[in-house]
Design a protein around this nucleic acid. Structure first.
Length: 976
RNA sequence: GCCGCGGUGGUGAAAUGGUAGACACAAGGGACUUAAAAUCCCUCGGCAGCAAUGCCAUGCGAGUUCGAGUCUCGCCCGCGGCACCA
């Protein structure tokens, strides 16, 4: 047989596969839809990082084909967007032409990998036939009230002269050109994605989704759902002297609405902050005495970019609105009102109740401006571990308690108690007697328990609450600890009663030892916060909150909300970080938004039969100075007739963002399989029902958050329309780890570390490259490229090739059991590993098998062909070539058909278990010997065998055996 | 700061709580060769030892366990995402 020459065989099979249409087995019973994130065809072509995900879906696709599935595995182009437009501006070339060139390059590069793509289904988001459907979906959203216009301050890039959604910013700079972004008001189209927020969140946990937790968490964070309360704060003139009395007399309707998730802290509200954008400032400008100062602050905040805000993160700024004040509806007290840019205009209500004692940002602000800090939550701890674990279902006995930290009279040491009857280690604790103040109680406990008498009070500490099971008293205890820090004046000590001595032992602890010594979390907390001063942001027990005092945070929130609702000044509210999707761009190279503006009829959707609204040709692609789209200058195109009244009207000149086309493209592949995108949508219903959902979706984690959210949103909308029958588009999503350059840095022109796959294929062949990318490490992990590594997988394929000369041509029935055992284990492992995206270990298992096969004189064709089939998803060309060569030697019809029309081998159970094993013998958990023995050896036999071993005897001689651990077919551990 | 992921030889890495380093790269030595390439064989975590072997070793420190790379807690470092979210 001639030498392995990938160049020759790879192009040969690629042509043959394409001609025969071998992958288009769309009429089988079970289906598998494998999808890649389609590429943006940039001018620089592919680098070796791109194909990693494509290879993985191709392996999966071929694997499923061999298992008898109909497999849909398409590819297309996401070709709208800024880079193509910028390229066009720079090179004075129509973006359409540039895009077509780039697609041709990409396609040529991809074809060299031998992927199973059905190119008949190729799509391109810039094809009018394609984007008429993108426009159609938008129209449907418009009809359902999900697309609306809004005049809002948006992020404006002065260089690109375009508006950018927040998602398009990079640290306050324009993602494309790096210019600092400023705020500008522009009319925008917005999609009401927040209507779908709950479903987008909840369905992440549905069984329809088999996603990595990592990606789901990303989606959850993006949606950022929080449950809280929104309520009104009345604003009154500061000149009113006693707000409590005048409250009912004030006849105004000036309110600020605030949103909070921590209503339990409301009695600690000592001021209120509004965002610089808040309308109350404008509304009450006559009342605000320092309006000019406020105005100055507003302007300053407005001109701040996100970057500047980030830099200023540590130092909070703000201005008090003098002349007005706000009433806390719970306390009826008046408190000052501030404007500060640490409150965001677009989240919640743009106003917050500030509780410095229990919020870190408010704390910082209050410290800086010397505002009162009122503590209303005290820490509470729930003992969840033994000793002292809360007994479920038993009532709590509430007790006041004291806690004393006692410092040594000279040294920096503290008194601890080691309890004798329980495994507790604590400070001095106890319960005060009737009529005692807590401090007196504390002094008494110290005296009783330790005998020390001369205490000096250093500090009264914050109260701490604790729920635990009181072991000596056998009750669940809800203790309220009054805490004190004492120092002894001297070592004078009385005798301790016998009873106390039986209970605990006294120890002096150095500062370092204390934390480790203490058992209860509550005491650890007190100790660790002894010298710290900051906001307490956890839940706890309410104090100084009138009749809500004593409740825990959770109960308090419920009751306070009830009260607000009863008073009619507040209600429960769910908030989302996720905002509606700003959907328009003032750009040329995007889908025109299919809307007509008519003076008489208003905003009218373009009728379905008039779609697509084609992108007209323009002379210059630059946006206008006003920020309008370049389309606005093409009067022929802009001027049209109103579909409703027939009068003169103007077209919408904004275009859609790049995200639009990629939000439904997985449906387009299905549609393309039937016709070239003809109306109506119902035509495709059956095909959607057949193919959806996508069974496997692979792409970069960096696109995962936004793209997946947008696509899921559109899919759910189409589900509501009855277009698709699944709630979720993608059953399984796996993110592909990036490939960095050999120097470990991101592959980029700048570092000169870009590797072109063409070169790698030229030198090593596509199969070697495919195997290398799957072998180089765990699939989802980022990893550096190594060209030397490819030579290793090439060597592996050379070995595979040479095995061909070892094939036994005589029809011998003799079986090589050693190989059979290994082969079937390998089949099992490769099958499991492909299912679970562990391609690296699948390949290493095949390498082990090949290394063994190489040592044999002869190998049977039955074994070899099974191996070839499990190799074929990874290295399709070489597998197909060797397979086809079998027909020269063996007269079997199957060898004249493609290997990809064969059946994936099933591992034979009887070869999966070994008869002989190496029994590992441990002494005290350390390996001392390994004995070859029968797999089904009993414990007694194993024990005798182990104890006979000389190596083991060395360690066990003269020792009593305490215990023997026996793990069947694995190991025996002798504990001495 | 918060959320998520990770830290194992010279390198990429493997390891249902059960022999740490499979498989591969690089390196070194050898065989074949006039020579080179290719191929094949050997060595390849550290320390000690001629060896058998022993001890140490999976970022650091504790803990659970007969037994921990794997589980728990605390810390350090790296990467990714989000960023004043009330």
């Amino acid at each position: 047989m001639e030498n392995y020459d990938p160049k020759k065989i790879e192009s040969k099979w690629q042509e043959k596969w394409l001609e025969s249409g071998i992958y288009k087995n769309y009429d089988r019973e079970k289906k598998f839809y494998a999808l890649d994130m389609f590429p943006y065809p940039s001018g620089v072509g592919l680098h070796v990082g791109h194909p990693k995900g494509y290879i993985a879906t191709d392996v999966s696709a071929r694997f499923k084909m061999l298992q008898g599935y109909s497999v849909l595995h398409p590819m297309g182009w996401d070709a709208f967007g800024l880079p193509a437009e910028n390229y066009a501006i720079k090179n004075k070339i129509h973006p359409k032409i540039a895009v077509d060139q780039n697609i041709a390059t990409f396609k040529k590069q991809l074809e060299k990998f031998g992927f199973t793509y059905d190119w008949d289904r190729e799509i391109n988001t810039t094809d009018p036939n394609y984007y008429k459907w993108t426009q159609w979906i938008f129209l449907k959203m418009f009809e359902k009230g999900l697309a609306y216009e809004a005049e809002e301050p948006i992020n404006w890039c002065p260089t690109c002269k375009t508006g950018l959604a927040l998602e398009d910013l990079e640290k306050g700079l324009c993602e494309r050109c790096g210019t600092q972004v400023v705020k500008k008001k522009l009319r925008q189209w917005v999609l009401k994605m927040t209507d779908y927020a709950d479903r987008l969140l909840d369905d992440l946990d549905s069984e329809d989704l088999d996603w990595e937790e990592l990606i789901k968490e990303q989606q959850r964070n993006w949606i950022g759902r929080s449950e809280g309360v929104q309520f009104e704060l009345r604003v009154i003139p500061a000149s009113e002297p006693e707000s409590k009395e005048i409250l009912n007399q004030v006849q105004n309707d000036n309110f600020i609405e605030v949103y909070t998730t921590r209503l339990d802290t409301v009695f600690g509200m000592t001021y209120v902050v509004v965002a610089p954008e808040h309308p109350i400032i404008e509304k009450l400008k006559d009342e605000i005495e320092n309006y000019s100062e406020v105005e100055k602050y507003q302007i300053g905040a407005q001109n701040k970019t996100d970057l500047e805000r980030t830099e200023l993160q540590k130092e909070k700024t703000g201005v008090e609105l003098k002349g007005i004040k706000v009433i806390n509806p719970f306390t009826k007290e008046d408190i000052p009102l501030f404007v500060a840019d640490y409150v965001l205009g677009f989240y919640g209500t743009g106003a917050v109740m500030a509780v410095p004692a229990h919020d870190e940002r408010d704390w910082e602000f209050a410290k800086k401006y010397d505002l009162p800090i009122k503590k209303v939550i005290e820490p509470c701890f729930w003992q969840l571990t033994e000793p002292g674990k809360i007994k479920e279902g038993e009532p709590f006995v509430e007790r006041d308690a004291i806690l004393a930290i006692v410092k040594h009279w000279k040294k920096d040491e503290y008194l601890g108690l080691k309890w004798k009857k329980v495994a507790w280690q604590t400070f001095i604790t106890g319960g005060p007697e009737e009529g005692q103040t807590p401090e007196e109680g504390a002094r008494m406990e110290v005296l009783e328990e330790t005998g020390y008498r001369n205490l000096k009070l250093l500090r009264k500490l914050s109260m701490v609450h604790s729920q635990f099971y009181h072991v000596p008293k056998k009750v669940n205890r809800f203790a309220h600890f009054h805490s004190f820090l004492f120092q002894l004046e001297n070592g004078e000590q009385e005798t301790i009663s016998e009873k106390e001595q039986e209970n605990h032992e006294i120890v002096w602890l150095s500062k370092k030892e204390v934390s480790k010594f203490l058992t209860p979390d509550s005491q650890k907390y007190i100790w660790e916060n002894l010298e710290k001063e900051n906001a307490y942001t956890e839940d706890g027990i309410l104090v100084d909150s009138e009749n809500f005092s004593g409740l825990d945070s959770q109960q308090a929130r419920a009751k306070m909300t009830e009260w607000l609702e009863k008073e009619g000044i507040g209600k429960k509210k769910v908030n989302y970080k996720m905002r509606d999707w700003v959907f328009s761009r003032q750009r040329y190279w995007g889908e025109p938004i299919p809307i007509i503006h008519c003076e008489k009829c208003g905003t009218v959707g373009v009728p379905e039969e008039q779609l697509p609204v084609r992108l007209p040709d323009v002379e210059s692609y630059e946006p206008t100075d006003t920020g309008e789209s370049p389309l606005a200058k093409i009067t022929d195109w802009v001027n049209t007739t109103c579909p409703k009244c027939g009068g003169l009207a103007k077209r919408e000149t904004n275009t859609m963002p790049q995200w639009a086309g990629s939000s439904w493209y997985y449906l387009a592949y299905i549609m393309r399989g039937i016709s070239n995108f003809q109306f109506p949508i119902s035509k495709y219903k059956e095909a959607f029902d057949t193919w959806l959902p996508v069974d496997l979706y692979v792409g970069g984690a960096e696109h995962a958050a936004r793209h997946l959210l947008y696509a899921r949103f559109w899919h759910k909308f189409l589900y509501d329309l009855g277009v698709v029958h699944t709630k979720e588009p993608f059953k399984k999503f796996i993110h592909v780890g990036l490939i960095n350059g050999e120097d470990g840095r991101k592959m980029s022109k700048r570092w000169g570390n870009v590797i072109n796959p063409d070169d790698v294929i030229e030198e090593f062949g596509a199969d070697a490259m495919r195997i290398y990318e799957m072998f180089m490490g765990p699939f989802t992990q980022n990893i550096s490229w190594s060209t030397a590594g490819v030579s290793g997988t090439r060597r592996f394929l050379e070995k595979v090739w040479r095995l061909n000369s070892k094939i036994q041509t005589t029809n011998s029935k003799i079986q090589n059991y050693k190989i059979l055992y290994l082969l079937h284990k390998t089949i099992k492992k490769v099958t499991d590993d492909i299912e679970n995206f562990r391609f690296n270990t699948a390949i290493s298992a095949m390498m082990i098998l090949v290394n063994e096969l190489e040592k044999e004189e002869k190998i049977s064709v039955a074994d070899y062909e099974k191996f070839l089939i499990i190799l074929s998803p990874f290295a399709p060309h070489i597998a197909e070539e060797i397979w086809s060569k079998f027909s020269d030697k063996f007269d079997d019809e199957k060898y004249r058909r493609s290997i990809f029309l064969q059946k994936w081998p099933e591992p034979d159970e009887k070869y999966l278990k070994d008869e002989k094993i190496n029994l590992v013998v441990q002494v005290n958990g350390k390996v001392r010997d390994s004995i070859k023995t029968n797999a089904d050896i009993s414990e007694e036999e194993a024990r005798d065998l182990a104890l006979q071993s000389e190596k083991v005897k060395k360690f066990t001689d003269g020792q009593a055996i305490k215990k023997i651990i026996f793990v069947k077919s694995k190991l025996i551990n002798i504990v001495i």
